[in-house]
Design a binder for these strands. Structure first.
Lengths: 211, 211
DNA sequence: ACATGATGAGAACGAACGTTCTCGCACTCC
DNA sequence: GGAGTGCGAGAACGTTCGTTCTCATCATGT
């Protein structure tokens, strides 16, 4: 694609506000950013391509040029959500001092997320609920994301020297906290899940309680 | 512009003639049964009124006569799901011997549900994910249902003499198990959640023991 | 038996949506 | 300067879907 920079804008008669066009690539990220926000807030089907055009300030032509179909756009948005989740949680986890604190930092991250503006639960769970089995493509991506999270917790648990049964339980706690917080519109589940995680970790590390 | 179709004719103030015709009132339960199944399997938006007509073997006219709009039908289906959940879980819980076993029976119920044909996660969570904040009506019903489940667990926990902090943790475990099982298409989360619940219950009943 | 009113089958309507097309305009290259 | 190209704005198209309407049919009451 040819890049264009308007070196000198001769200030036309401008019947309409023909603003200086930004670099072509910014449209792509604008669209993705708008889609990530709108899809999360209202779901895939409730957001039309027209809404995205309006929110991202691009023409429909350009939108379809960059994303030939809504499905493709949805898939890219799922990737954005995955990256945002990974980097967000990892930042909080890596800031913790020891393996135990790193595991618990997961629930501290959740607590902050739950109180953030526009929190509406896990985007992947919502996506799964929305498309159900209609889109095997989306289902696969959601499944991979959850698998990735479980592996992530498993690594943290291994780092702590915990038996392999712990990580799935901690993952279940996290998932349950997310959906409970979303539906109840409360951040309390994060603290409750954290407290439960502390108990499970403590018991898992105590030799007497080994199974 | 006939706005009302419940014409109160002079004569026929009596119930439906259920003799010569194929039982007239069964249409209502047929529709609800079909809607409960189809909505759960594919979501609200993916199931059209035409699909319901076909599946329930009624005419469109009759369908709209019994349920003036899709939204009203959806609300009734949510009620059906609520009753099915309540009676299903309560049957398994009441079959247990003591309070502790009754709490754990919740996760046994989940294990059976997860392996049942067509399991696709919690219908309420899926509904919440699908309509998001679009329908405050549905959101309210989902919230009430989850609140009801938490209260149910709280009663069971009280019966056991456990501190009030236990029930929310057990609820989070159950919610997490449901979504994890749905996405991973596995019943393993039920057993993992049960094991975690056993630990949490044990610790909750011996407050001084741990830590 | 006829009028009445309810019913089933399905056409029709109106809105929404994903996608494509048209057109005029600005800019570039020869 | 003129042909070509990429773009924005938005109309247009085809489909889907919720909802209503038409019409022929049929059971029933008098």
């Amino acid at each position: 694609m040819t890049q264009r920079q308007t070196g000198h804008s001769p200030a036309p008669a401008h019947p309409q506000p023909s603003r200086a066009r930004p670099v072509a690539d910014s449209a792509r990220s604008d669209i993705l950013a708008a889609a990530a926000v709108l899809f999360y807030a209202r779901g895939f089907t409730a957001v039309g391509m027209d809404d995205l055009r309006t929110e991202a300030n691009v023409s429909l032509r350009r939108l379809y040029q960059l994303f030939p179909s809504k499905d493709l756009l949805i898939e890219e948005v799922l990737g954005i959500w995955r990256d945002a989740w990974s980097s967000g949680i990892d930042a909080q986890v890596q800031a913790a001092a020891d393996p135990r604190q790193r595991l618990l930092a997961v629930y501290d991250f959740l607590a902050g997320w739950f109180t953030s503006e526009g929190f509406r639960g896990c985007a992947f769970i919502n996506s799964f609920g929305e498309v159900g089995g209609a889109s095997g493509r989306i289902t696969t991506i959601v499944r991979e994301q959850k698998k990735h999270f479980q592996d992530y917790l498993a690594d943290l648990a291994t780092e702590l020297g915990a038996p392999p049964g712990l990580a799935p339980q901690l993952a279940i706690l996290a998932e349950g906290a997310i959906t409970t917080a979303a539906i109840a519109a409360s951040s309390e589940p994060a603290r409750q899940a954290r407290a439960a995680a502390e108990v499970l970790i403590g018991v898992a590390l105590s030799p007497a309680a080994r199974d």
